[in-house]
Nucleic acid binder design. Sequence first.
DNA 1: CCGGAATCTGACATCGATGTCAAGCGGGTT
DNA 2: AACCCGCTTGACATCGATGTCAGATTCCGG
Lengths: 338, 338
Amino acid sequence: MSVVTIKDVAARAGVSPKTVSRVINGEAHVRPELRDLVQKVVAELDYRPNAFARSLSSSRSYLLGLFIDDPVSGYAADVQHGALMGCRARSYHLVVEPVDLTAPDWAGEVRASIAALRLDGAVVAPPICDDAALMAIFAEAGLPTVLVAPSIAPPTSGTVRMDDRRAAQEMTDYLIALGHRRIGFVQGPLSHSASARREEGFRAAMAAAGLAVDESCVMRGDFTSRSGMELGEHLLALPERPTAAFAANDDMALGVLITAMKLGIAVPEQLSVCGFDDAPSSRAAWPQLTTVRQPKAEMAMAAVDILVDPEFRRKAGGEGSQLMLPHEMVVRGSTGPA
Amino acid sequence: MSVVTIKDVAARAGVSPKTVSRVINGEAHVRPELRDLVQKVVAELDYRPNAFARSLSSSRSYLLGLFIDDPVSGYAADVQHGALMGCRARSYHLVVEPVDLTAPDWAGEVRASIAALRLDGAVVAPPICDDAALMAIFAEAGLPTVLVAPSIAPPTSGTVRMDDRRAAQEMTDYLIALGHRRIGFVQGPLSHSASARREEGFRAAMAAAGLAVDESCVMRGDFTSRSGMELGEHLLALPERPTAAFAANDDMALGVLITAMKLGIAVPEQLSVCGFDDAPSSRAAWPQLTTVRQPKAEMAMAAVDILVDPEFRRKAGGEGSQLMLPHEMVVRGSTGPA
DNA sequence: CCGGAATCTGACATCGATGTCAAGCGGGTT
DNA sequence: AACCCGCTTGACATCGATGTCAGATTCCGG
């Protein structure tokens, strides 16, 4: 028997296992001297409660699931990182479950995970947090769920988001303040509703400044840098070339940047470019991209808090907590005066 | 009681729980009719064994740990993806544990995870798979461990790697075949031993072709794109400019690419550039980077197989399995004839 | 037709924790 | 003095599966 059990601790401290359990879980009603004694013995023996036994008897698993579409994307990595930090801070563990909505039996696999692991909660990342069928599975299983940056907010789940609209508005205000009047906008795919909100913000800022949006300067991409490059070619070939381009995500902004470079258009002297997300690639480019930092890790961490910490949840607004986290403009080299 | 237990199944099938357990775990010595009957009932009731109860009594956790330094990097994401796929295929689950070797009590946290979760095995990603102290913790805990792409191979662990040296050699051969004679090489940091092997391969290929390596064309970077840019400036300012640059990773290659673009040097017409890793960014650039695909996901998946599947392990060479997986050259737009 | 081996099957203990509940104890009330 | 109450503490059952072991059944050769 190499592992230390609660009985060992109890025996050595001269108390019952139950008392040790009380100390471990920070329950009330233990005399301070006993508490200290037990804690000392726990430290001495380097005792670690067996999570399985604990889960079995308490029907809490101390496990959260992170449900994610494409665990390879940089976005997912940030979300996961935040969730991990949140779990660690609260002695929970994180089980990552990839969900491929195009796989034949994805629903069965999700159900299997939930049932086998008795998860205490689920953090769901975009874009699958917008899938109704998936949400139905969680609801049916009675699994507390928090969505990260969803486009819609089902009443059964908590959500943690940022204000895409306002962020885009701020970015546009910034471009206008730099003296730009003719600003191109590269939209994201229709399926991605946050990108629609970014466009709203752009248009709102333009309107507020009394500037007309030239619709020939607004084009739809698909979030890839390739689409940014192609649209950039159109944009920069326009008879009246815009002096700034705002893309709904960083990859597309990068595409525009590359095209500008190929065409010999100096950034930011002749063209300002900005993106959205603060993806890692926005820093690898030259000049580095001005963008909006999306608090991905922070959102995931808050999601964990909502799931795990009743008090936090109460503060955040009860069961269907709707939390909005602040974003941040990141001004780097790709934008300058008109 | 909404969840189905093994007793429910047993009752409905008219057998003992133990027999159900036998069927579930595919043990021998169950009459075929009974087996079929039980399986039918399991399907009907949609019974899922409780992983905790199972772990508690069998002292297997059906859980693997993925120990990783920086869960945000693209490299980590690929490794994780592979591990996840491997686990899924074998009905294991994956717990991701970030390890920050600079944190004050990282060792304690690792120990806590191992003890609490009773992990069945550990997959360790670079660069922390080269940390002796960490490996010692695993050894001490008796935890079967497989390292992904380590630079050294401790006898107590399995390893899954690729042949960095040979891959670099092939890439260099390719450049030589394109007619390049003067080739710059951007080394990785000293701490990263795989990068040393890449340099060996480069030199071996040059030597085999009877070409001298001009040491002024060999410089050391730190794997960031910024260092690639800076070294690129030196490289391209050389009196006798090389016609090709080979960087030990993609980010640095990207830096060289950007510098070339800034200096108005056409790629690949005037300069061929190639990297190593097939990082996501290698595709976002323009022209897209010629590189070596490192089978990151495959390595992780094989690591899981080694841990979980005794048969696979036997085939791969027993306890200290040393598996070498094939790489692949990815020729894209950044390389061309000299 | 018998003995022994091989094959099935289930009763029961067990894994390591927590939930329940009741008993012990001291202090304040009437 | 009797009583009630709240704080402490531990005995015991329990969570849901698997390990052990022994009893029951079948199979086979002699």
